[in-house]
């Protein structure tokens, strides 16, 4: 029996910071798994999603909430969704999704691919104006809307999960550059 243990480390070590009116916090307790829909398997997938997570399949650019594992399903591509959820076993989130969806989707663990920052507070959109090319106005980007875009040369998935709350996901390896871009924007707009 090996006596070596591996300890996990979050991309930003669970970073939290308040700048002005906005709180920035790394989200470390959610898993993210992609599910690709087999060609011709849309109906089976919708049924599996409903059965496994109690969620409807979102169109690309939207997200839906499920009633199991606190799941949120993000429509990322025409034939692919991301499932963001509280994993029963953080080491095997893809297994959880595979079991829930049976063979109705091809699943891939993405939990370690992204750093997730939640930005909350009045003024969050004012700060994002400095880096985010998307129109985050209520009428264009309402609650549950999701989009992938580029900020400061980084790929970023933006999800609106509250009136003044956004989840931002960006590749893990550049997490520090991403945090810098976000926080510099907040510093630049704070009084």
């Amino acid at each position: 029996m090996p006596d070596w243990k591996l300890s996990a480390r979050a991309p930003l070590d669970g970073h939290e910071r308040n700048i002005g009116t906005v709180a920035v916090a790394e989200v470390t307790d959610l898993a993210l798994v992609s599910a690709a829909v087999p060609r011709g398997g849309d109906e089976a997938f919708a049924a599996a999603l409903a059965g496994g997570f109690g969620a409807t399949r979102p169109v690309t650019g939207d997200s839906t909430l499920g009633n199991r594992h606190a799941a949120r399903v993000l429509g990322m591509q025409p034939d692919q969704v991301f499932i963001l959820f509280a994993p029963p076993d953080p080491d095997r989130p893809a297994g959880t999704v595979a079991a829930a969806l049976a063979s109705a989707a091809y699943v891939t663990d993405q939990s370690d691919s992204w750093v997730i920052l939640r930005m909350t507070g009045a003024g969050v959109r004012t700060a994002l104006e400095r880096i985010c090319p998307l129109d985050l106005d209520d009428r264009v980007f309402p609650l549950h809307r999701v989009a992938r875009t580029a900020m400061e040369h980084l790929s970023v998935i933006v999800l609106r999960d509250g009136a003044d709350s956004f989840l931002l996901m960006s590749p893990r390896s550049s997490a520090r550059s991403f945090r810098h871009a976000v926080e510099l924007s907040l510093e630049h707009v704070s009084e």
Partner: peptide, 14 residues
């Protein structure tokens, strides 16, 4: 487009 094949990057995952 008729092939059933799906791609996703896992460069950052592992």
């Amino acid at each position: 487009p008729g092939l059933d094949v799906h791609l996703i990057s896992v460069t950052e995952q592992w």
